[in-house]
Design a protein around this nucleic acid. Structure first.
Lengths: 229, 229
DNA sequence: CGCCCATTTGAAAATAATCAATGGAAGTGG
DNA sequence: CCACTTCCATTGATTATTTTCAAATGGGCG
């Protein structure tokens, strides 16, 4: 149930307070898009590195990105997968706290933070909107902590699949990332991830169309597995 | 290294933009305090429950609070310990996403959200301040995910102790919460927590003055143990 | 002073990690 | 277009860590 990616979900349209007359109420994100520019990133290509000056926000339009940090002992932690609609960088202070790379080829919109701040100063809707996105990020972070702290391998995988299912073609789930990526995201090894998938397959809960796509054939069974959270 | 509690740290004084003349620049939090009221909570007493309408923010003045959720299988997850200076409820949308209870007797300041919003509409500093606090929350949530996903029991305990040490009397650490609380916070069982403490004690890394206070005698050893993150 | 609850300690069981080898798919270069 | 190479995924066996179950200890509070 914990949403896969943090800073997304255009939350239920902000109530349009008509301070000045305007042809139609404009959503905060729509306003942002006016100052955005398009960026494309290739598979395994970095968008920015941990420690880089955080000068921009990004929104994923197409493809999947991952945010990861290298731990002191060489292990890699994936903090988030960013799917279409997700925002990247809202939580950065002066510098980005993690590296972001393309899991697939991807298209993003880049928003200069300077410009966003300027716009936000005029349009309180923008700020409201960004704060809402951050709230969502905190909410999903909280759920993921419960997952990482208290769930078994199978429960984590089940949650992960349901999250992805809820964000796309319910039932047909794309898994563009590697098993290692999934492991680094869920706090498991690649082998454990693989075994969990195989078990779900053998129990006819999912079907696999190649390694990077699964069909959920028994959603309720998956939901049962996440009952721990 | 992951900060124990999320929404705190009066961040480096916001640059005072003198829009109108004012005797002295007033920090966002100081402005907030004017509309706050004091609340006291006893040990094991709830401040609010998960699902309650989120009508207030709180700041801890004295004592320790915990934010917890009950998982579907009966297990309990502690999302955060809130220490003096920490804010509670900033991440709530319509309702509080977790129950908050006193670990010790505690004193808090309650801020009506309605009033805060009204004040924030006039004073952009307030919003900046709140956004900064949320950013800190996201930052610590991220670090805690890495901890829960990738660290061993001993590494988690070491991180936890260092976090607490960094927030108080460096070296003399108060542990008002039970071993079970710590376990529910770190994703471990009470027994594992106890064993880790005992091992640290036997290795002369810490000393115990009763169950609820430890003295760090070898900080660098603790830091070494967290090298995984 | 005695009871109760949290903590500590011990032993057994379960879960996931690690080590190791095989299988397969995608991409490269001839 | 095919063969080769490389990387990723799967599978198996073993090991390590943590949980679970159980019992004993000890401190704090009435």
């Amino acid at each position: 149930m914990p949403p896969v990616a943090a800073l997304h979900r255009h939350h239920p349209a902000v109530s349009p307070i008509a301070v000045t007359f305007r042809p139609a109420p404009i959503d905060g994100i729509a306003m942002l898009d006016r100052i955005g520019t398009v960026v494309t990133i290739g598979r395994e290509e970095p968008l920015f590195y941990e420690g880089d000056g955080a000068e921009c926000y990004y929104k994923v339009v197409k493809g999947v990105m991952r945010g990861c940090t290298l731990l002191a002992d060489g292990r890699r932690h994936i903090g988030d997968f960013f799917l279409a609609g997700d925002f990247i960088g809202l939580d950065a202070d002066k510098t980005y706290p993690f590296t972001v790379e393309g899991v697939t080829d991807a298209t993003l919109i880049r928003y200069s933070r300077r410009k966003v701040d300027a716009l936000a100063a005029q349009e309180p809707q923008i700020t409201k909107c960004l704060v809402g996105l951050m709230r969502n990020g905190l909410s999903s972070a909280r759920q993921r902590m419960a997952l990482l702290g208290h769930m078994t391998a199978m429960e984590r995988i089940a949650s992960f699949l349901l999250d992805l299912a809820d964000r796309g073609d319910n039932a047909r789930v794309a898994l563009p990332m590697t098993r290692t990526d999934i492991g680094d995201y869920l706090g498991l090894t690649m082998e454990t991830v693989s075994r969990a998938f195989c078990q779900l397959k053998s129990e006819h809960v999912i079907q696999q169309q190649g390694v990077h796509e699964v069909a959920i054939t028994d959603r309720s069974a998956l939901e049962e597995l996440t009952k721990a959270a």
